[in-house]
C-alpha cells in the first residue's frame, strides 16, 4: 500500500453521476492533449476527406465541399484510456452516416487514417447509425490543431484513441486490420464500460 500524500486530491471533478463514469475513469475539467506524433498542419486548400476501399466507387470532399455537407451539434461524454473522462463535450460535425450515404459497402470493417500516419480500426457498425462524426468544431470554435483540427473522427462510445485526430480518410475493408495503438497492445474494440483497454482484457 503506497503512502498517502496528505492533502493531495488532484484536479478531478468529484461530484459526478456514477452511471456516466466507466470503471477506472476520473472526470476532468481539462482537455488533455495526447498524441502519438507531431501536430500536422495541412493547409485547408490541400485538405481532403475520402471514403475508399470495399465500398465501390470512392468519394472525396475538399474542405469547402465538406463544409457544405449537413452537420450537427452533439454533446457527448468522452473517455480516454489514460483514465480521464470529460462529460458534456460540445462538438459540431458531419455524421459518418452522411459521408456513407448512398454507398453499399461490402466491407464490415473500417480503418480511419490521418495526416502523420496514424490509423485506428473499428467495425463499420460502430461508426454508423448515429454513432460517429467527423468533427470540425469544439465548443463553438474551429477545432484546434492540437485537438485534431481541422477535422477529427469522433466516436464517443469507444475509448478516445479511436477518435482519430487529423482524419483524412475512412477505408472500408473486408478484414479487420489493427490500427496504430491496436497493434501495440491496446484493445481491438475498446469499450470503456467493459474496460477494454488492452488486448488481454
Amino acid at each position: 500500500m503506497p503512502p498517502i500524500s496528505r492533502g493531495f486530491r488532484g484536479r478531478r471533478q468529484t461530484e459526478v453521476d456514477p452511471s456516466r463514469l466507466p470503471p477506472g475513469q476520473y472526470v476532468t475539467k481539462d482537455f488533455p492533449v495526447l498524441s502519438a506524433g507531431p501536430t500536422p498542419h495541412t493547409p485547408l486548400d490541400e485538405w481532403s476527406l475520402s471514403i475508399a476501399g470495399a465500398v465501390g466507387e470512392g468519394r472525396s470532399w475538399s474542405w469547402d465541399e465538406f463544409m457544405d455537407l449537413p452537420n450537427e451539434v452533439v454533446t457527448v461524454d468522452i473517455h480516454c484510456v489514460t483514465k480521464w473522462s470529460k462529460f458534456d463535450t460540445p462538438w459540431r460535425g458531419v455524421p459518418v452516416d452522411r459521408l456513407l450515404e448512398g454507398t453499399e459497402p461490402w466491407g464490415k470493417y473500417v480503418v480511419a487514417w490521418s495526416d502523420g500516419g496514424y490509423t485506428t480500426n473499428l467495425p463499420l457498425a460502430d461508426v454508423t447509425d448515429g454513432k460517429a462524426w467527423v468533427a470540425f468544431e469544439y465548443g463553438g470554435e474551429p477545432l484546434e490543431p492540437e485537438h485534431g483540427g481541422p477535422a477529427r473522427l469522433l466516436v464517443p462510445h469507444l475509448y478516445f484513441w479511436k477518435s482519430a485526430k487529423w482524419v483524412r480518410g475512412i477505408n472500408l475493408a473486408e478484414q479487420d486490420e489493427p490500427g496504430f495503438w491496436e497493434s501495440y497492445g491496446y484493445h481491438n474494440y475498446g469499450d470503456p464500460f467493459k474496460e477494454q483497454r488492452y488486448w488481454s482484457d
Binding site: P3, I4, S5, F8, R9, G10, Y26
Partner: peptide
C-alpha cells in the same frame, strides 16, 4: 508518485 486517500 502521489496517492490520494481514495487511491487516485
Amino acid at each position: 508518485r502521489l496517492t490520494a486517500e481514495d487511491g487516485y
